[in-house]
């Protein structure tokens, strides 16, 4: 009887520990959110060009300039300024040529919308990815 009880408490303990760890991990993620400015481990990046509200060509990719010198980055394109999961695509860009190749995908993703929001996550030499930059609104022509 005691042995069965012990086994059941052990199983229960496993479940409690798993749940508590999940909760703690979630809280740590929330606390460390770069947008709260409380994280020391996440780097940030500012997308300085194109400027907010720029008119961009559907045929030619805009020039991307960031606050870091990294030429490798993830380009996020979204139909919403909040970059929600369901309205956003991300593309891995290694160079200006890479952006030219990928720009068509961005334009196709936009569909009939003429407004699109872009943001970046820079990737440094150690493959560390920054938090999401500011969003920039573009009007496509």
């Amino acid at each position: 009887m005691i042995l069965v009880l012990s086994d059941r408490i052990g199983t229960m303990a496993d479940k409690i520990v798993t749940t508590e760890k999940l909760l703690a991990d979630t809280l740590i993620v929330l606390t460390g959110n770069a947008n709260l400015g409380s994280s020391s481990s996440t780097t940030g990046v500012a997308l300085t060009k194109p400027l907010d509200g720029t008119i961009a060509s559907k045929n030619t990719a805009p020039t991307i300039e960031m606050s870091t010198s990294s030429t490798t980055y993830l380009l996020y394109a979204s139909t919403e300024p909040t970059f929600g999961d369901t309205t956003t695509i991300s593309l891995y860009i290694e160079s200006a040529n890479g952006l030219t190749t990928s720009w068509e995908k961005v334009v196709n993703f936009t569909g009939s919308n003429s407004t699109i929001y872009i943001a970046v996550k820079s990737i440094d030499v150690n493959n560390k990815i920054s938090s999401l930059s500011n969003g920039v609104k573009l009007t496509l022509q």
């Binding site: 947008n35 500012a46 907010d52 929600g84």
Partner: peptide, 22 residues
């Protein structure tokens, strides 16, 4: 330096509900 104005409907500033403007 560079600065962001961050606005969100979420107290936690979760991506998908947050706008960052340079």
């Amino acid at each position: 330096n560079n600065y962001f104005l961050v606005s969100s409907t979420s107290k936690f500033y979760l991506q998908g509900r947050t706008i960052k403007t340079f």
